[in-house]
Design a protein around this nucleic acid. Structure first.
Length: 458
RNA sequence: GUGGUUGUAGCUCAGCUGGUUAGAGCGCUGGAUUGUGGUUCCAGAGGUCGCCGGUUCGAACCCGGUCUUCCACCCCA
């Protein structure tokens, strides 16, 4: 009985066309990363269990794919743990490796391990798959690519400014107009929590606030109440729900709200500097928008937070995100190493470009020229010609067998080949080859000993 | 992790209150057309109805389980 082929939930096969499109996005991103001075590194697909666990919160721990130990791992578990049937205490005893969950934590580990070889500030980029044991949905996979660029060892806000420009540059290159780069600052959120007297409920407060555009003002208030935030605190936070106007208008409103909070004012000052710089430098097609409700779950962010929204009308979660983390390497024993970085979600950008029809047409072209095969003698001449075309950098091939012309033409058609070359008996005798333009059907004849004439026409 | 949803030919989908040999369009293969594709005409191939079990004289259809898809939570790229 043959096994029915299948792949795990949330994973995908990629066809030649899909790979071409994905590579197009990756190359565009990598090119800008390098133009901005980042260097590539790669890290293993799986890390030590302890490297990853505890870095992403309880929710994150649940979504990490653990790798079962090799050998007779179960016999090494003590009876008490084994019979307790408690997954969280049993897992670390039967698994000491786990699949990479993102690229930031492995990068932090990398920086600490290689600190003596690195020149700081160190700017690295990394394009690799990550894995999450999530339940798949549209734009959510269990295996997907992240494209990260981070700087460690530089506290200057100029880095934050550059990352906004980098986002803009990539989306401009991809022809993706109208993206919104949302920006906020963790210090502002801390300040607000402080001012309203909910300092110890910062996380619950920000998570609830983050949902404003989704569940509305009433929904947010209810969730805050449910999380134990007092009504007077929520009352004080009320101005946040009505923040309107330009980035600067909103900053002014924040200032009056946060005047009592040192950390809050520091966050506002940072935001102001970034926003002002970007205004002076200008952006090509993206829009920078201050969004006080932007929270982002990852708890290692300490300063700026970014999130990129697809153009209006495209229903898709964020296509990129990032921020400043002052002490990411601290957990691995390297103190005072500030980092800031951004990430592009390749798979989601793909879906957005597909939905908007923004992939260049040439990506579907796997072949520039197909040579029709008329028989033994003719195909030899065809191979010689194809060799010259290949030297000129054209993707060219001879149809492998002298099937019916109709079949060969159909093949050319379905492979989207723009030019078909015919070398039959007549041409061979005359020392010529005929080029058929598949788009308009026009045919032109060239000398076999001078294919350069044809190549120049392209 | 919670709740829901989907699965029929390579693709997109029909298939009535359970009732003979499960259909269409597109695609594919062959022919009309022995040196010309994307239009047309003719013919043909192709299906364990996701999988396992149950109810029934009888199941694509009803029930249970399982896998998958998509959606809402949770969270997130």
């Amino acid at each position: 009985m043959p096994q029915k082929p299948s792949i795990p939930k949330g994973t995908r096969d990629f066809s030649p066309t899909e790979v071409a499109k994905r590579n197009y996005i990756i190359q565009t991103i990598k090119k800008q990363f390098e133009v901005y001075g980042f260097q590539p590194i790669e890290t293993p697909s799986f890390e030590n269990y302890d490297t990853l666990m505890g870095k992403y919160g309880d929710e994150g721990d649940r979504l990490i794919f653990k790798i079962l130990n090799s050998g007779d791992f179960i016999s090494k578990v003590d009876d008490v743990t084994y019979s307790s049937k408690n997954s969280s205490s049993l897992t670390p005893k039967i698994s000491d490796k786990a699949l990479r969950y993102d690229l930031t934590v492995p990068f932090a580990r990398y920086v600490v391990m290689h600190q003596n070889e690195l020149d700081f500030p160190f700017k690295r980029y990394q394009v690799q798959p990550v894995w999450r044991a999530d339940r798949p949905q549209k734009g959510r996979f269990r295996e997907f690519y992240q494209c990260d660029a981070d700087v460690v060892g530089a506290k200057s806000l100029l880095q934050e400014v550059e990352f906004v420009q980098l986002y803009d540059a990539v989306f401009e290159d991809l022809g993706l107009k109208g993206t919104t780069i949302k920006i906020n600052n963790r210090k502002v959120l801390s300040g607000i929590a402080e001012v309203i007297g909910a300092k110890n409920l910062l996380v619950d407060f920000t998570v609830a606030l983050d949902k404003l555009d989704k569940i509305g003002e009433e929904g947010v208030k209810q969730e805050m109440l449910a999380k134990g935030i007092s009504e007077t605190a929520i009352e004080k936070a009320a101005p946040l729900f009505q923040m309107t106007g330009s980035n600067h208008d909103q900053l002014e409103q924040l200032k009056s709200l946060l005047v009592q909070s040192e950390i809050g004012m520091a966050g506002v000052a940072e935001l102001e500097e970034i926003v002002t710089h970007i205004e002076e430098l200008g952006l090509q097609s993206a829009k920078l928008a201050l969004d006080v409700t932007l929270a982002r779950g990852l708890n290692y962010y300490t300063g700026a937070i970014y999130e990129v929204a697809a153009p209006e009308g495209v229903k898709m979660g964020s296509i990129g995100g990032g921020g400043r983390y002052d002490d990411l390497t601290g957990i691995f024993g390297l103190k005072d190493m500030s980092g800031v970085g951004i990430s592009f979600g390749l798979d989601r950008i793909y879906l957005v470009l597909e939905e908007l029809g923004l992939f260049p047409e040439s990506l579907g072209r796997s072949l520039d020229v197909l040579c029709i095969n008329f028989g033994k003698e003719e195909s030899l001449a065809a191979l010689q010609l194809v060799g010259k075309l290949r030297s000129a950098g054209l993707k060219a091939e001879v149809y492998p067998s002298s099937s019916k012309m109709q079949k060969q033409m159909k093949y050319a058609n379905s492979r989207n080949v723009p030019y078909v070359i015919l070398i039959g008996k007549q041409e061979l005798d005359a020392g010529t080859f005929v080029v058929k333009n598949m788009e308009n059907g026009e045919q032109q004849s060239y000398a076999l000993n001078n294919p350069g004439e044809f190549i120049q026409q392209l």
